[in-house]
Amino acid sequence: MSTTDLGTSPLPFDEVRVPVSGGALAVLRWPAREPDAPAVLALHGITANGLSWGAVARHLAGRATLLAPDLRGRAGSAELPGPWGIAAHADDAAALAAGLGLERPVLAGHSMGAFVAALAAVRHPDSFGRLLLVDGGVGFPAPTHLSPDELMTAVIGPAMDRLSMTFPDRTAYRDFWRVHPAFAEQWSAEVDAYIQRDLTGREPELRSSCRLEAVRTDGVGLFDPDVLAAVRRLPSPATLLWAERGLMDEPQGLYDEQRLAEAALADTRVTPEPAPGTNHYTLLTGEPGAARIAGLLLAAAGRG
């Protein structure tokens, strides 16, 4: 059976709302089997939502409680107002940890969520334990002739384009994603549930729930000096798990050995680990990547 035909049903989850500045965030919760199991707070990417962590939750198999919010301006938290920005999300993460009564949970983030996680650990050092950065969180030298807005467009332009599109029904949205190069060979019921959570509105004008102003502000914020410096000031050890391939399944990923060398991580608390055979998305949603992440999370929690 090819990975395109996988029929794994998404793992059931609870959805709760947790107060933060200006309102409440929607948080997806996959509970652990045992009351003394560790907790993981997991942050998604710039145009994603909490259900992107569904495959990881399944691989955790109840050995930890996984809590994945829809960040401010996305999916179940789309109506939560600004201010937007990486610092705002970092403070929201600390508010979630406190509001949910978490004792120094493992903090994980994918893509933009990794930058949020690093900054949250710096701004709120007593709130979190070890970190797992999934294909994000570490900056690298960028072309100096481009503005932050131009840099963001160069990296996530196709994702930004989607936010202005409308779709006649959910099948059309599924068809749009199924031909995406990153997912074409690794589609699953979990991926389908994740992308369907993004939709809002009514047929025949369904659209992404991501608020464009939030995504634009957050994207530009990724190049803020304080955000980029966060990995050099981490109070706890972190692992950077990086994908071999890029956002469109292109051979050049966000990271490679040369870019990591240029990032000069030797004097930080970050340990890079490659994930061969994955792209930016399937590192989180595909079977090998999700299993690898689950193992690293359990190790970070002292349960590996």
Rank of each mutant, 00 (worst) to 15 (best):
G99W: 10
G82L: 01
L163G: 12
P10Y: 05
L265N: 02
Y281L: 14
T239S: 00
A120K: 04
L199R: 10
R58A: 05
F223T: 03
S208C: 13
P237W: 02
T47D: 13
G101W: 14
A88D: 03
G76Q: 06
G54F: 02
R174K: 10
P251V: 10
L146V: 05
L71Q: 15
W84K: 09
F13G: 03
D256V: 09
G7Y: 01
Y255H: 00
A42R: 03
R17T: 02
T239R: 02
G62S: 15
R233H: 06
N279G: 09
S52K: 04
S9R: 12
G50M: 08
Q186L: 06
G289E: 02
A93L: 08
A118T: 01
V191Q: 11
L228H: 00
A39R: 13
M1C: 03
S52D: 15
W53D: 09
G99Y: 10
G50Q: 11
P204I: 13
L212E: 11
V191H: 08
R130I: 03
L241E: 02
A261T: 13
D224I: 03
W242E: 01
A26P: 08
S111A: 08
D224V: 04
L163A: 10
Y173L: 14
G101Y: 13
I195P: 10
A61K: 15
A57S: 07
L132C: 01
L133N: 00
W177E: 12
A93N: 10
A108R: 01
L41N: 07
Q252R: 10
S147L: 04
F128M: 10
D175Y: 10
G246D: 06
R178W: 04
I46K: 05
A87G: 06
G286H: 02
H110F: 03
G201P: 14
A159Y: 12
G45W: 00
R269P: 00
G136H: 00
R233G: 00
D36F: 09
R216A: 09
Q196K: 13
A172R: 15
A114S: 02
L234H: 01
A108V: 07
S147T: 15
G76D: 07
H145R: 04
